[in-house]
């Protein structure tokens, strides 16, 4: 898993073409002009698919999303090499607002709803780039629970409701590509089910392309068409969702399963991981 290039396990690994919505090509990201966070990071999101981006804490998943949405400058980071291409256009150095207008929306980690605004006002803010074309009915129709909370102040909603609002807000810009940063983080098990169901429906009902960043690899691979595994700032493994779910390394590291398919304790996984890193 530590070889220089990503290991592709599939002959059907998509080539960049007309069906590619997003291409991250050989991107290097440096924070504060010294801290190298991504190097040679490449991935492809084909039109109409859900792509899962897996990896442990600090692997660079969120940084990848920030490179795609243009948020790096707000954290003293910069793309120093490589390109990000969306629908044929080079957006590597575009302003965040321009990327939203082109059709990229991000559901941020930790929900980040506008706490002092009502649910409806959050959606108004989400529709900022749309002007008069904002379609509230579509979002209230897709997430009916939000319609009942319309006038409530977002900061006082439950975690699940806030996550739903964060997704609804992102949908208001009428995106073609939705980026989701750990949407299931910190939610109760029942809500996690609901959240992954929403992600699936985003793709099947609204026809959205999605890049899903998750630590919950099992659930993410269940809704995704294909996946990538990141480690130390680059892709180490790529393939269809089924292939990844079957891969012994993925099972070992991210699904917590041993060779025999039984559950392994966290301690074993950690030990195995440490040992494996030195090989």
């Amino acid at each position: 898993m530590t070889s220089g290039r990503a290991t592709s396990m599939s002959d059907r690994e998509p080539a960049v073409g007309a069906d590619t919505l997003l291409t991250v090509d050989n991107v290097e990201v440096i924070y504060d002009e010294v801290i190298l966070v991504l190097r040679g990071m490449s991935l492809i999101v084909p039109r109409g698919e859900v792509v899962a981006l897996l990896g442990s804490n600090g692997a660079g998943k969120s940084t990848t999303l920030k490179a795609i949405t243009g948020l790096l400058p707000t954290e003293h980071g910069a793309v120093t090499e490589g390109t990000v291409t969306f629908d044929g256009a080079d957006i590597t150095r575009a302003e965040p607002a321009e990327r939203v207008r082109r059709g990229i929306a991000l559901v941020m980690e930790g929900r980040r709803v506008f706490e002092h605004l009502t649910v409806h006002e959050n959606l108004v803010a989400g529709a900022y780039t749309r002007g008069a074309a904002a379609d509230f009915d579509r979002v209230y129709g897709f997430l009916p629970r939000l319609a009942g909370l319309r006038g409530r102040v977002a900061g006082y909603l439950s975690g699940g409701e806030q996550q739903m609002l964060a997704i609804g807000r992102a949908l208001m810009s009428d995106p073609r590509l939705l980026l989701l940063d750990e949407p299931s983080l910190g939610l109760a098990p029942l809500l996690v089910d609901e959240m992954f169901d929403i992600v699936r429906r985003l793709n099947t009902d609204l026809g959205l392309t999605a890049l899903l960043v998750e630590q919950n690899a099992r659930r993410a691979l269940a809704v995704a068409h294909r996946g990538y595994v990141m480690e130390s700032g680059r892709i180490v493994l790529a393939g269809t969702a089924a292939e990844l779910a079957d891969n012994p390394d993925v099972k070992e590291f991210y699904l917590g399963l041993g060779e025999a398919g039984g559950r392994r304790s966290y301690r074993d996984v950690k030990h195995y991981k440490r040992r494996k890193r030195w090989l």
Binding site: L71, E115, L117, N122, A125
Partner: peptide, 21 residues
């Protein structure tokens, strides 16, 4: 719309940027 955007910026600048504000 701009008034709501202004309050959104007051709440969370980074999240406001992501909305295209």
């Amino acid at each position: 719309r701009h008034g709501v955007a202004m309050r959104a910026v007051a709440d969370d600048q980074q999240a406001a940027l992501v909305q295209g504000i």
